[in-house]
């Protein structure tokens, strides 16, 4: 009970801090403009004459790649730079409670952005009869993938005091996870790594797990995959922060 209250207090402050500065609004507008442009202009949503959201969800991994690191780069780097981490970690909360509060705030913030895309659903259902189950699955998959991106961004933010470094490193890590199964990326490893390692890296890719969710299949393996990425990154954040030598 107390741990939920502690996590909740950190969560509330973090979420509020997004909306206390222009960051939230710039982010949300950027997210909507980008998804809108890519869906309607680049993948020609109308011209396809198909009432589904495949061209919409197709872009999510790429939009997240650019915007999630921007939304998460401050989670810990800013606390470390300004020294407020010293306040936060001398409050009667455990490190894990503080981490969970921040992670959930970051995740909900992205999910709010995702929820703001509802006009796309309205458009599709005005023009035709899309399968709402498939759309729902797509949204669940997209939200889960956003959580995985947020957890990666939080880990890199904990490693540095510089938000720029946190942004770049998390963008590269997310790109690696996104493209892990793609031949040009696997060939980077096939030359020197044993084949089991190459396959393991390929299996870490975000993409195949999102594709099955986009098709409307909620598979326990995909859920497990995204949740384990988050757990892994949260544990990594805990290790990084517990071993810091100063603020």
């Amino acid at each position: 009970m107390e741990s939920i209250q502690n996590t909740g207090a950190v969560f509330k402050r973090e979420l509020k801090s997004y909306f206390e500065s222009p960051v939230a609004y710039v982010f949300l507008v950027g997210f909507l403009v980008l998804t809108g442009f890519l869906t309607f202009s680049v993948t020609r949503f109308y011209e396809r004459q198909v009432a589904d959201l495949q061209p919409f969800f197709f872009w999510h991994p790429w939009v997240y790649l650019l915007l999630v690191p921007a939304a998460t780069m401050g989670l810990w780097a800013e606390e470390r730079r300004t020294g407020t981490i010293e306040l936060l970690l001398t409050m009667p909360v455990t490190l894990l409670q503080a981490i969970m509060g921040k992670f959930l705030a970051g995740w909900l913030f992205i999910t709010i952005g995702l929820a703001c895309t509802f006009p796309v659903v309205l458009t599709a259902s005005y023009l035709g009869r899309p399968d709402m189950g498939v759309i729902f699955c797509g949204y669940v998959g997209s939200a889960l993938m956003a959580g995985a991106y947020v957890s990666v961004g939080m880990l890199t933010s904990a490693m540095t005091r510089s938000q720029v470094i946190a942004f770049v490193v998390s963008l590269l890590l997310c790109l690696l996870l996104l493209l892990a199964g793609w031949p040009p990326v696997t060939s980077l490893f096939t030359q020197w790594a044993p084949s089991w390692l190459v396959e393991a890296i390929a299996a870490f890719s975000f993409t195949p797990h999102f594709e099955s969710l986009q098709r409307g299949v909620i598979d326990a393996r995909d859920l497990t995959y995204y949740l384990s990425v988050m757990v892994f990154m949260i544990a990594g954040t805990q290790i990084v922060l517990a071993n810091r030598t100063a603020a």
């Binding site: 107390e2 500065s21 300004t82």
Partner: peptide, 21 residues
């Protein structure tokens, strides 16, 4: 004296009260 600069004094102290239970 670190503190969250985007918060108001009252909101900052409310947050501290929250984490202090």
């Amino acid at each position: 004296a670190p503190a969250y600069h985007s918060m108001t004094v009252t909101n900052f102290l409310r947050f501290i009260a929250d984490v202090r239970g």
